[in-house]
Design a protein around this nucleic acid. Structure first.
Lengths: 195, 195, 195, 195
DNA sequence: AATGAATGAGAATTCATTCAT
DNA sequence: AATGAATGAATTCTCATTCAT
């Protein structure tokens, strides 16, 4: 990694810490600079402005997320188990990264400008991967075909995001991965009584 | 309604319009006051501060939502159809109230202080009602028993909130109630291939 | 004068003092506010921004200038003496108002945005008056006709502005109204040897 | 010219281009460096600071101006025609160099620090030359003697500077050398009706 | 001599809130 | 109760200049 990239990462790291505790508005550039041990002006050599810095946080984390996730998928060959793994890993990851969860769930996910900014692309790569898994599952017959895979993805991610969001708002008082089996069960089999 | 309450409503109405377009931070008290045809100082006779005014918006709308929802439930006696109606009405309501959707989905739903503020109660009344429906459905056998009703509620609301949020971020370009049947289907029957 | 206008004047007065010593860039809003005994924010209730405040200074002074000038013209009925009076009064006025001279000659007169701003109008009223005097002089035969009055005005004001500017740059070390007679003479009779 | 001087000129050239469009404050060192194809730090090897660089622009141009002017004077032996030539050439030069005109008329001419800086000397050489011409004219009898030659110079340069300045402020919309004959006429013969 | 990354001081402006009328 | 003028804290961002390489 070049010296340049290194400093960039160093700043993003500091930003992640600060934005992890305070909202975008309440976080101060001065605090980030201090935490990153650079002058305030230096931030502006690496990022266009405060928002650009803010939006640059997810890239790194998302990459980390995806890499780990792929490792976890190794050796799993059927769609349903991949989905189960996805559900578990998603919850596990945010349980382990609550500060980043705050940033992503309570700020980014709700921001039009983030979506428009190029920084959304990395996250899109992940959701594309999820779609792939679903389509493979449909092809192999383990996931219902005849249902729009986008809709299936919406259900899975909707539930997961909701779960993480609630957990954050309740100040992370309970175990986010708890009841993981039931969550999978309801997503897979629905809420309707089967007979 | 007292003259006092009337003016209160007038202000909330103006606030809903302004906050419907701009974010909390970007909305100006001065604009709200102007739109409500009162002096800025007057706002502070009715609301403690900007946040208090902001958080006061949902009460009225939620009540409206609940009343209408109850009307729509009239004559429906089985749990599954109640759920279907819930799903439809939820999407329909936000389709008809996109400005309010913005406020609720992109700001309130993501705010710790809103939850802590008393103003969350009205919304809680609604989610309690959903829980009731689920429990009734479980009792009558149409909804799977043996699954935590809270979890079932989480799935339903998670999907719905996700759907509305995506729609807002995509600038309301498509029909929010579209594919309503498929949405119900996936929620009710799950994503797993049934055989 | 309304209370509102009074405070406006008070601020302009303070601004004139500060801008009289420091350049536009070097003058600080905070100093002006302090000198005017108002909060910094108050300035922005009366003026759009720093530049707007700056450009608002000449109006008052120009009016004062014109009024006095008109008094001085009283009882003078021929064009040449009016021109002589103009020359004298112009030099005299800036001699008595060196701080304002700085603002007008070294900053405003050289600023495209000032000309474009409405605030230039008051000064235009003065130069229009000068043109009138010249045209009257031409009509009565005391000033050369057959020469564009605009050009004549340009000569008169050009010399005067140059004189005041030089005086300011030389730090007002000599008497600005000195040699007034010779100045008139050269402007009136030209530089060419008469035979 | 040494390699060193060459780079110096290169930088001044770039500075002239940039300062020709933007004001001193608005021009960026970085842009000048880029245009001169040197690093920002390099500028500071050749010039003490931004102002020093800015003030260094006129030297070269003034020299160019004087050389050309002297060529134009060749073969003219009487004072009045020299003055006429001066008036014409002055207007012509700035018409051909509007960017430099901006710098000189709207910024330098109005700056105390420029006068104090040594860089004013080259310009002084020119005004000294003008004084010489006037004194020669007085000696030969074509220019009025008995009038302070400094005052005569003030009239000539005052009118010319005023003319160029107005032209710049009016965004160079008309021909600067237009009406050149009338300008000479008024300067030479004055504004007074001759009988 | 040349570089260019890092610096950090510095200032305008906004706007929710107050309070005298 | 209503007003709205006055407040002033609070913060991003710029950019000339430096200096280690």
């Amino acid at each position: 990694m070049s010296k340049n990239d290194l400093k960039r990462q160093q700043i993003i790291q500091a930003a992640a810490e600060v934005f992890g505790t305070r909202s975008f508005q309440n976080a101060a550039i001065s605090e980030i600079a201090q935490k990153a041990s650079v002058a305030e002006g230096t931030l502006y050599q690496y990022f266009k402005n405060k928002e650009d810095l803010f939006f640059s946080i997810p890239a790194q984390k998302t990459e980390e997320f995806c890499e780990e996730f792929n490792l976890h998928l190794e050796g799993i060959y059927d769609g349903l188990n991949k989905i189960r793994k996805l559900i578990w890993y998603y919850l596990y990851f945010f349980k382990m990264n609550p500060a980043y969860a705050r940033i992503l769930m309570l700020e980014m996910r709700v921001s039009k400008s983030f979506i428009k900014s190029g920084n959304y692309d990395r996250i899109k790569a992940f959701t594309d991967r999820v779609l792939e898994i679903i389509e493979e599952g449909q092809a192999e017959g383990s996931i219902r075909s005849g249902v729009d895979p986008y809709l299936i993805r919406e259900v899975i991610l909707g539930v997961l995001e909701h779960r993480v969001t609630r957990w954050l708002l309740k100040e992370e008082k309970y175990d986010l991965t708890g009841h993981y089996n039931e969550v999978c069960d309801v997503i897979l089999r629905g809420i309707k009584s089967s007979e």
